[in-house]
Design a protein around this nucleic acid. Structure first.
Length: 1020
RNA sequence: GCCGGGAUGGCGGAAUAGGUAGACGCGCAGGACUUAAAAUCCUGUGAGCAGUAAUGUUCGUGCGGGUUCGAUUCCCGCUCCCGGUACCA
């Protein structure tokens, strides 16, 4: 009766606070429903507010659901989003799904279920999980790359790429018509285009005389997307091309079938046209230096020269690219990739068996293996020679698999005195190592790539330095017509075809062997139904299975689909105007949102997604579809969350006994009991039987206690086993080689490395009757290892259980509290209680702790805050605002903790302080703050668009400073001085200090360093 | 192999211009409340040595050097771990 009364009273007395106890479940459910109903986070495309676009790399919706690694970046971006709203920005913060991909296709192959169905289910689960964490996404803008309404525009961009060429003169992409116009007026003369190597030269008249088909064929060599042969991992047994990921140690991961490198007709993207702009653009974006460095290295711009080596007694040349033209007189052999187009011609009859064997072996090795293997030297002599154009020397031509066909010209001029790999090759094949610079040292032991000194054995550049020699060499090259200065890029054109089902169909059909674009009104070209998601028996992609799938009922479609990165290369524009069916996005919306102000995602996308996106963006800018040269102004990589795997140790027991030959007993018929040993026991038993046993240490009593405990338990188990399974074969032996086996155990039934034994037994039917040898106190301690979070390692932690137990606010704070956003960090929930306690303590500033008989009273008053309270508040305002700007969220969480600790100590319940605190905490913990914001008398739901409190430095002014006083760099005491004390006065007082005098021992200090407002150091 | 990143107490981490190493949280230990437990609150907590204690002192930021009055921070040389390496996304 009294309980009901007081609850009723407290409810009536105040404007709004139905809840005096911090009930995260109720609070969070209420506010999530409120936001959804009121569309709190819906974003408009035109307001007078300044725009701010915060983007998360959208996830691939896998079947395992969202794990705690996913939200890390989303929480960070949501904090910035909510902060920017409080700062008066109109923030675009959308979410969607990169929903084409291999896992769904694998699943479809296994189950026969259409990938669209599983993808749909996975997305539904992701959305539910994301909504549970309280992100302020504008869900009305969600996109999915596998939705035909979306991929219609991916296909449209592909078509625009096909309709474009790259004009080096204007340094941008242009419609193919401008190229044709040039052909019509001047032929190929004066055309500076990025194109295939084998473009024919012709005059305007010749062009006009060509038949239409031939004209079209010529333009195909210029378009930004084109068909060419590219090397792929071909697995004949599976009838398909494999991702590098799916190849392990040269064989397919599934099934272990052989994989060979095979050339295949593929759609390519002429990203190399943009190499230099991709490089230059990096200087204009606010990304981490390491990320930019990775992209620079990937693009790999190198300045050098291309030189042609005439093949002896033949008309053909071998072209090589070198960045060290100055070493040309040191060339003692030539190395070609085994796939080089001239291999067959160069191979002499005598060498043919060796060469054939080598080429076949190289086909079996993946590109990465070939590059990674620097230790073994392998190669084969072709039997042919070429001529060094600088000195006329004969140069033997070898093949070696460390030279890759796709890089540069697929040929390398080898200079063993200057390049370690060439040096090793020369040693192996006993080829000459010619010194070329007097500055080279010890070249009989290793290569020396120095540019120091003057040239020797080097014909026209003998006696010159590097700087002097280079122009001489380039002039010679050009005069003799044997080469030219050239800029080379490591980056290659991107393969755009996938021999897969679950991707965007390419909007192309073939007529008389030539590719043509579909009519634009026929977009989207939808994925046709197929009976199976496998390649055909003849090795064609799955789309070949689609029956009657022909363009206009007549022409063959392209059968490959687009790669995973197609949709993600432009998706951020779709969020600006996601429903538009006339354009990929309305130009007005694009003009307003322009680019992404903050992009958050994993560093594993550094060279894939982020290069392709920049490439497409630049292309779209060239063609006038978008306004900005760079799409992502600022970018941060969140660190990977590693899983903390737990292990149980299964005792390796064998059933034994002496079996007489005539006994008829089957030794294998008895299964030993399954026994799990706790970690400490396992370690002690292992150590005590190992070489370094415990002897005479202080621990020896404890060790003996554990050993006795183990022996007793084991005897018990043996006795039980004998009783339950009578017979002669009933002895149990522990293995001496592998005492136990570590087995992954689901981390969700382990708490602080202590196993929930009951839950473990219940988790699988075969574990019901297992035995445990626990610690003497009855607990079972698990082993620990940090590894990648993955379902197969049973270390995936699902955010749902944490949200259920602690609430989304705690999850959000805890993920941020784990450490710096950009660091990789192991996930463990050991500290989560501390964050939860913090929220409860924060709540206690507003509500008294409830007792058995009555709920907690509302404590907040309208009293004027004291200077001490204002100091705490403003210190926190400054720290949190700074931290958010620097994306240092772990430190702001601890700043909140310090603030609440201090306000609790001051017993501060004043609205003037607490209301500001609610606002600055809101981006981190939106639910609890919405609740308290309303309880403080504000209109529910208005917190998201409130105003971030302004920091007032006046509250933080100090009039004294505590100086640490060091002797020889070690702090020995501290002294307090008023802020305006001059250095000489400080010095005087420091020298009079008794601690300092003690250390001086009567000597005069050598030096006294006084750093104003910082520190004093006395050097003795 | 190549490119990029990282390493600080028992654990996650802090020290944002080279200036008191270990903020904050977890864990642990002791205490208060309780029949008890949970929850909550209070105190202590890098390691060693000396001291009843206050305290003093030495060592200490992966390893080995260097620059500096002073280095977790800057430089040189290593070790180990992680990411990427062109069809995972």
């Amino acid at each position: 009766m009294p309980r009901i009364f007081s609850r009723y009273r407290s409810f009536m007395c105040l404007n709004y606070h139905p809840m005096s106890e911090y009930n995260h479940k109720k609070i969070e459910e209420n506010w999530r429903a409120f936001w959804e109903k009121n569309q709190t986070f819906r974003t408009e495309n035109n307001t007078s507010k300044p725009k701010y676009y915060i983007l998360d790399m959208f996830p691939y919706p896998s079947g395992a659901g969202l794990h705690v690694g996913h939200p890390l970046g989303y929480i960070a971006s949501d904090i910035v989003t909510r902060y920017k709203r409080l700062k008066g920005f109109n923030v675009l913060h959308p979410m969607g799904f990169d929903s084409f991909g291999l896992p769904a296709e694998q699943y479809a192959i296994q189950t026969g279920q259409h990938p669209a169905i599983t993808t749909e289910q996975n997305i539904a689960r992701y959305i539910e999980q994301l909504k549970n964490i309280g992100f302020s996404f504008d869900w009305s803008r969600e996109v999915r790359t596998s939705d035909p309404k979306f991929y219609k525009w991916t296909q449209w961009i592909f078509m625009e790429l096909f309709r474009s060429w790259y004009n080096k003169e204007t340094d941008q992409a242009e419609p193919i018509e401008t190229l044709i116009a040039k052909f019509e007026t001047n032929g190929t003369s004066g055309i500076q285009a990025v194109s295939d190597e084998d473009t024919p030269r012709f005059t305007a008249d010749e062009w006009k005389a060509k038949p239409e088909r031939e004209q079209y064929e010529i333009t195909l060599k210029y378009r930004l997307t084109y068909v060419a042969d590219a090397v792929v991992n071909w697995c004949a047994a599976l009838g398909t091309v494999l991702a590098n990921d799916e190849v392990k140690d040269g064989v397919s991961e599934r099934g272990g079938y052989p994989v060979e490198q095979k050339l295949m007709r593929q759609w390519m993207m002429r990203i190399t046209a943009y190499a230099d702009r991709l490089l230059r653009g990096l200087d204009t974006v606010d990304w981490s230096e390491s990320l930019k460095e990775q992209q620079r290295n990937w693009i790999g711009k190198s300045t050098g020269a291309e030189v042609s080596f005439q093949i002896e007694q033949r008309v053909e040349h071998i072209k090589v690219f070198t960045t060290r033209l100055d070493t040309i007189f040191g060339v003692s052999f030539m190395v070609l990739a085994p796939e080089h187009e001239l291999v067959a011609e160069l191979t002499t009859l005598a060498q043919k068996p060796d060469v054939d064997a080598y080429v076949t072996a190289a086909k079996m090795r993946s590109e990465r293996d070939r590059m990674a293997d620097a230790k073994t030297v392998s190669g084969v002599f072709t039997g042919s020679y070429c001529i060094n154009p600088f000195n006329g020397e004969r140069v033997p031509i070898f093949l070696a698999d460390y030279v890759l066909a796709g890089y540069g010209t697929g040929a390398v001029m080898a200079v063993p005195s200057g390049d370690q790999r060439d040096w090793a090759f020369a040693k192996h094949f006993d080829l000459p190592i010619i010194p070329i610079l007097d500055g080279q040292k010890d070249i009989d032991k290793q290569a020396d790539n120095t540019k120091e000194g003057r040239y020797i054995n080097s014909g026209i550049i003998d006696g010159l330095t590097y700087q002097e020699a280079l122009p001489v060499l380039v002039r010679f090259l050009e005069e003799q017509g044997i080469g030219k200065a050239k800029i080379n890029y490591r980056m290659r054109d991107a393969v755009f075809s996938r021999q897969r089902y679950w991707g965007e169909p390419v909007p192309v059909y073939f007529k008389d062997g030539l590719p043509y674009l579909l009519d634009e009104q026929d977009l989207p070209l939808q994925l046709p139904p197929v009976d199976k998601y496998l390649p055909t028996e003849t090795g064609e992609p799955p789309l070949a299975r689609a029956e009657g799938w022909k363009y206009k009922g007549e022409f063959e479609y392209e059968l490959s689909t687009m790669p995973g990165w197609a949709g993600s290369s432009w998706y951020w524009y779709r969020y600006m105007d996601p429903q538009n069916d006339q354009e990929f996005a309305d130009q007005k919306a694009i003009a307003y949102w322009r680019d992404v102000d903050l992009y958050v995602g994993g560093s594993e996308h550094a060279t894939g997604h982020l290069l392709y996106s920049r490439f497409w963006n630049k292309f779209m800018k060239d063609r006038g579809f978008v306004p900005e040269e760079e799409p992502f102004k600022k970018l941060v990589n969140q660190g990977m969350i590693l899983g903390r795997s737990n292990f149980v140790y299964r005792l390796n027991l064998t059933v034994g006994g002496t079996v007489k030959a005539d006994s008829g007993l089957q030794p294998t018929s008895k299964i030993p009991p399954v026994v799990f040993v706790s970690k400490t026991i396992k370690e002690i038993v292992e150590k005590s039987s190992g070489p370094q046993s415990f002897t005479g240490s202080a621990d020896s009593d404890r060790v003996q206690q554990y050993l006795d405990f183990f022996e007793n338990r084991l005897s018990e188990i043996k006795r039980d086993f004998v009783e339950k399974t009578p017979g002669t074969l009933n002895n149990l032996y522990t293995s001496s080689s592998a005492f136990t086996s570590a087995i992954h155990v689901d981390v969700n039934i382990v708490d602080n490395d202590v196993l929930d034994i009951q839950a473990f037994k219940k988790s699988r039917s075969d574990l019901e009757n297992v035995e445990f040898i626990t610690e003497p106190d009855g607990s079972y301690i698990c082993g620990v290892e940090i590894e990648k979070m993955s379902k197969s390692k049973f270390n995936v932690v699902n955010p749902d259980t944490i949200v259920e137990r602690y609430g989304a606010d705690t999850l959000r704070l805890y993920e941020m509290f784990l450490g710096p956003l950009t660091d990789a960090k192991p996930w463990n929930t050991n500290g989560i209680d501390g964050v939860y306690r913090f929220l409860k303590k924060f709540w206690r500033l507003f509500y008294e702790e409830p007792t058995e008989t009555r709920p907690g009273r509302w404590l907040v008053t309208d009293e004027k805050p004291t200077p001490a309270e204002l100091k705490v508040l403003h210190k926190t305002i400054r720290k949190v605002a700074e931290d958010i700007e620097h994306l240092s969220f772990n430190t702001s969480v601890s700043a909140f903790m310090v603030c609440v600790n201090e306000l609790s100590a001051l017993k501060c319940n004043k609205k003037a302080v607490l209301q500001d605190l609610v606002v600055i905490l809101a981006p981190f913990a939106p639910h609890i703050t919405e609740e308290l914001w309303a309880a403080l008398g504000n209109e529910p739901g208005t917190l998201s668009y409130a105003e971030f409190p302004v920091f007032n430095p006046a509250y933080l002014v100090e009039d004294t400073i505590e100086y640490p006083v060091q002797i020889n760099g070690k702090v020995r005491t501290t002294l307090v001085f008023s802020v305006d004390t001059v250095a000489s006065d400080i010095e005087k007082e420091v020298l009079a200090n008794e601690v300092v005098l003690k250390w001086l021992e009567g000597k005069t200090p050598k030096k006294i360093v006084v750093v104003p407002k910082r520190i004093v150091n006395v050097v003795i």
